[in-house]
Simulated scan of single mutants.
Amino acid sequence: MKEIITNINGIPIYRNFVENLPYNPLLKILLKEKRKARILGEVIFWKKVRAKKFHKIDFDRQRIIGNYIVDFYVKTLGLIVEIDGSSHDEKQIYDDIRQEYLESLGLLVFKIADFDVKNNLGIVMKELEDFIIQHYGTTPSSKIE
């Protein structure tokens, strides 16, 4: 039986920890620069989820996975949360390859538009709740295909 890590709206959320994720230590320098940049959308989202404020779920900020730095990572779920700003407009192919790689590791990616974080945070948080319930709210054996 899988471990329940929290409940969202009365629905149990099950642990989906992905082990042995690749890690490129050469990205540590870039990671520090990214954290210092303090991108507004990321700061706003971080204030909502840090210190287990969002349904007692532990989020990591700026996590290295393989050759990528993801915006937010939930270890217990194997969930990546990406906040896409205007810099992503010209990088659709790169983003698709990146997402395909991350998903090949058994991770799920939830993307949010930076505009929505800044202007519709309540809706963004509700969509994140719904995504977590949909993907982690039932044990794998009870999912209906």
Rank of each mutant, 00 (worst) to 15 (best):
K2L: 15
T6W: 02
N7I: 07
N7S: 12
I8R: 13
I11F: 05
P12G: 06
P12C: 09
I13H: 10
Y14A: 07
Y14V: 07
N16C: 09
N20W: 01
L21F: 02
P22W: 04
N24R: 14
P25C: 12
I29Y: 15
L30P: 00
K34E: 10
R35E: 14
R38H: 10
I39R: 15
E42D: 03
F45H: 08
K48Y: 00
V49E: 09
R50K: 15
A51E: 14
K52D: 07
K52H: 08
K53N: 10
K53I: 07
K53W: 06
F54H: 10
F54W: 12
H55F: 14
H55W: 15
H55Y: 15
R61I: 12
R61H: 11
R61A: 08
R61N: 11
Q62I: 03
Q62V: 01
R63E: 12
I64Y: 09
I64L: 09
I65R: 11
I65L: 03
V70C: 11
D71E: 00
Y73K: 13
Y73R: 12
Y73F: 15
V74L: 06
V74Y: 04
V74T: 04
T76H: 01
L77G: 03
L77A: 05
G78E: 05
L79G: 07
L79T: 09
E82P: 07
I83Q: 07
D84R: 08
G85M: 05
S86G: 00
H88V: 05
H88C: 04
E90C: 01
E90L: 00
Q92A: 13
Q92M: 12
D96Y: 03
D96I: 05
I97H: 14
I97M: 12
R98S: 05
Q99S: 10
Q99E: 08
L102H: 06
S104Q: 12
L105D: 03
G106T: 03
G106R: 11
L107C: 08
L107S: 08
L108T: 06
V109E: 06
V109C: 05
V109K: 06
D114K: 14
D114C: 10
D114E: 15
D116G: 05
V117K: 07
I123M: 13
I123Q: 14
M125Y: 04
K126A: 11
K126C: 07
I133D: 03
Q134T: 14
T138V: 11
S141W: 13
S142G: 00
K143V: 06
I144D: 09
I144Q: 11
